[in-house]
Design a protein around this nucleic acid. Structure first.
Length: 474
RNA sequence: GGCGGGUUGGCGGAGAGGUUACGCAGCGGAUUGCAAAUCCGUGAAGACCGGUUCGAUUCCGGUACCCGCCUCCA
């Protein structure tokens, strides 16, 4: 069996991955707050952990991996948008408008991430469905002295957890010294964070022992991961920006609430995304969503390919140039793969071992892509198509569909080849190439590559091959 | 101010203490009615300074620059 190695943020070293239970490998990844369209930065962890999910399924078996990614649907930005709509005259209660907003955002998210070739996680819990568990966990932390209620809030007592700050490499005292935030008067310690907070009249809220309120952000992930994966599980992932405070707080809560478990064994963090060398931000005007790119005609697999070109722990730069390079590679794979693979054999062919090995080495996706390119260079067509399917870039179904299209056009291609050959033979004698050039242009317009040499004429359907246009030439 | 990450050829981007990464682009050639595609060949690097070593782009230290987090942004 392949040994997977992963860089564990907890230890800052690359370690052999040893699952708690190989028959049920468990992974939790922090998902989006569903207040708006996912931007390109949101797509990075989705693709990175999708690759890890696929690798785990490959190594341990598809039925032996449980992948959970949550939706945070309790949030001020969601409330703000719902309130804006209500003021703009939308019908319904605020609660209904909030629900409407989260439903539509989740649908967008699914559509956009599907386009990137990301498999849906096994569970996609919504925070609002686990409020009971959050209240219970909060109460438990109060009972054991790790939390306290004050002014309608419940706060986690950071000093009660000795390892606080370990994941992110900070000491509580340093953090206080460098803090720039105003400290709420009801806090015992400036670093204490909210587990539960009161809701004002128009904000959504749930009844609790501390009055009507809503959960703090961090407790959501702790409650949902516990409910779905247990006290101890294998991998916890997310963006590097979440390492502090979100993940630090999750660890503190979960470790104190479930002292017999050890929460996540491996913590993985993906680095941030930049655009043309700068941080993506609305003020710089380089902010865009996944949907924006798709609407510009950049296919999802091209976005995915670009994301995989950079290792997940390096900052990655999105550039238009990379998208062009990725699109060109993928076209080569599709055209040549569909032409030369054997659909029956490919279905039974495993992804290339070199590619699996590259991914097993701390998700070295760029090396994996290099190995894919080598498959093409060595004409290993069945492995090429099977591997691209495995990587989520081009499905075998797409190769098959393309092949079917080519087969359907084969006789037409043959006929056009004969026509072009005879026109060319005549033109060679008469030195009048106008008829040849006319047909050539028409063929190129139909996406057919025209190769003419001493040996003769060859017509090869290219990436933009359009069988309808070709048939129209008759 | 505190913590962390990075700096490789024109561009992207790896591995390895000593042997060509690779891809794209470039250049030269073959081929071609034109073109496209293909094939062959080829130049080009390791931010800076020091240390360890027979030998460092690869290990260690420092400097510069860049980036992120410290604000419920992945």
């Amino acid at each position: 069996m392949v040994t997977i190695r992963l860089t564990n943020s907890k230890t800052r070293t690359k370690e052999d991955f040893v699952p708690i239970d190989p028959s049920n490998v468990r992974m939790y990844v922090c998902g989006p707050t569903v207040y708006d369209r996912a931007h390109l930065g949101n797509a990075r962890p989705v693709v990175v952990f999708d690759v890890l999910n696929r690798l785990l399924r490959h190594v341990y078996g598809a039925d032996h991996v449980t992948y959970v990614r949550n939706f945070t649907d309790v949030d001020d930005k969601i409330n703000a948008e719902a309130l804006r709509r209500q003021k703009a005259g939308s019908p319904g209660t605020l609660e209904e408008l909030i629900h409407e907003r989260t439903e539509e955002t989740i649908a967008w998210y699914h559509a956009d991430m599907d386009a990137l070739g990301a498999l849906r996680p096994d569970h996609e819990p919504r925070a609002t469905e686990y409020i009971g568990q959050m209240i219970a966990m909060t109460q438990g932390l109060i009972d054991t002295g790790h939390a306290y209620a004050a002014s309608g809030h419940v706060l986690f007592r950071v000093r009660s957890y000795k390892d606080y700050g370990k994941l992110s490499g900070r000491s509580i005292d340093d953090m206080i010294a460098g803090a720039r935030v105003e400290v709420a008067p009801y806090k015992e310690d400036p670093m204490d964070f909210v587990l539960w907070k009161p809701s004002s009249g128009e904000e959504p809220g749930w009844e609790s022992p501390w009055g009507k309120g809503r959960p703090g952000w961090h407790i959501e992930c702790s409650a949902m991961s516990h409910e779905l994966l247990g006290e101890s599980f294998d991998i916890h992932g997310g963006g590097l920006d979440l390492q502090f405070p979100h993940h630090e707080n999750e660890i503190a809560q979960s470790a104190c609430a479930h002292p017999h478990g050890d929460f996540a064994h491996y913590w993985l963090h993906n680095e941030m995304l930049q655009v043309e060398g700068k941080k993506m931000s609305k003020s710089l005007g380089n902010f865009f969503t996944v949907r924006d790119l798709l609407d510009q005609g950049i296919p999802g697999e091209v976005i995915r390919f670009v994301l995989l070109m950079t290792h997940y722990r390096s900052p990655m730069d999105w550039t238009a140039e990379k998208a062009v390079a990725a699109a060109s590679k993928l076209e080569d794979y599709l055209v040549l793969g569909a032409r030369f693979f054997d659909p029956v054999v490919a279905r039974k062919t495993k992804p290339a071992q070199e590619v699996v090995d590259a991914l097993a080495d701390d998700l070295n996706t760029h090396l994996a892509l290099t190995e894919v390119d080598r498959l093409l260079g060595n004409a290993r067509w069945n492995e090429l198509t099977s591997t691209l399917d495995f990587l989520g870039l081009i499905s075998l179904g797409r190769f098959e569909a393309r092949r079917a299209e080519l087969d359907a056009s084969a006789s037409t291609i043959l006929r056009q080849t004969e026509i072009l050959t005879s026109l060319r033979t005549a033109a060679m004698a008469s030195k009048d190439f106008s008829a040849v050039d006319a047909l050539k242009s028409a063929l190129i317009a139909a996406g057919v590559e025209v190769r003419m040499s001493k040996a003769g004429v060859e017509l090869v359907p290219g990436p933009d091959f359009d069988s309808a246009k070709l048939e129209a030439l008759q």
